[in-house]
């Protein structure tokens, strides 16, 4: 069982590297969809496991919600937001991609360094999964910083959320159902608001490049 999770956590980490390496907004959304699918798979495996062992449906329901929300609904929402925004070819990142990848590798090492000594997470296998998912959080954050356009920030936010979800999942093997539902509802709200905001920013500044917001400073 744990070897599946090891592989899946590594794949999730890989998908966030993939995200950082992309240049176009459409591919961001696609990669986010892949990452979410991987998370849904993880949840599914764990859900089946817990159904067999304890007979509880909780995690399976969470898995279904992930599929509906993160694999289908949110990417579609993002596509729609992207569609309303005027298409402009602009360099979307501050540093070049190889450098970004290298920094992300550094972040993984840093996550390994800082998480490896947390007492309650002792034990080699668990440690690795948590390190991977922790790195996903950091990479998601870094992705937000490295992209100029507002949709990049939305995706980064979602990746952070994915990372937090997976970290919680791997370290506790399923959080209380209510907590998961609460997080999902928060996330939907955030994404809806962000979508509206992006459209507004585009109307006001004729671009979703966040650098333009500097003009707002008093």
């Amino acid at each position: 069982m744990d070897s599946y999770f090891d592989i899946l956590s590594a794949l999730i980490l890989l998908s966030s590297f993939l995200l950082v390496s992309h240049k176009r907004i459409k591919s961001y959304i696609k990669t986010f969809r892949i990452q979410s699918a991987l998370i849904a798979l993880t949840a599914g495996i764990m859900g089946i496991d817990s159904l067999i062992r304890e007979g509880s449906f909780d995690i399976l329901i969470v898995c279904v919600i992930i599929v509906l929300l993160k694999v289908i609904y949110i990417p579609r929402l993002l596509y729609r937001t992207y569609g309303t925004v005027e298409y402009k070819v602009e360099k979307d990142f501050y540093l070049n991609i190889p450098l970004l990848i290298l920094i992300c590798c550094g972040l993984v090492v840093f996550a390994y360094f800082s998480v490896s000594n947390i007492g309650s997470l002792d034990g080699a296998h668990l440690n690795l999964q948590v390190v991977n998912s922790f790195s996903v959080i950091l990479i998601g954050f870094f992705f937000m910083i490295s992209r100029k356009k507002a949709i990049g920030q939305m995706i980064g936010f979602l990746v952070i959320e994915n990372g937090i979800f997976v970290t919680a999942f791997f370290s506790t093997h399923g959080m209380p159902f209510v907590v998961d539902i609460g997080i999902f509802i928060d996330m939907i709200t955030a994404i809806l608001i962000m979508g509206v905001m992006v459209t507004r920013i585009n109307e006001k500044f004729e671009s979703i490049n966040l650098d333009k917001l500097k003009n707002l400073k008093g």
Binding site: Y94, F110, A111, F113, S114, V115, N117, L138, F141, F142, M144, I145, K148, Q153, L210, D211, L213, K214, N215, L216, K217
Partner: peptide, 25 residues
């Protein structure tokens, strides 16, 4: 410090998180 750039503000938070993690270690 207050440049008006969202990215810089995000960077502050990011650096703070990293420093806290380092401190924890």
């Amino acid at each position: 410090i207050q440049t008006g750039s969202v990215h810089t503000y995000l960077l502050y938070i990011f650096v703070a998180v990293l420093v806290l993690m380092l401190y924890n270690r």
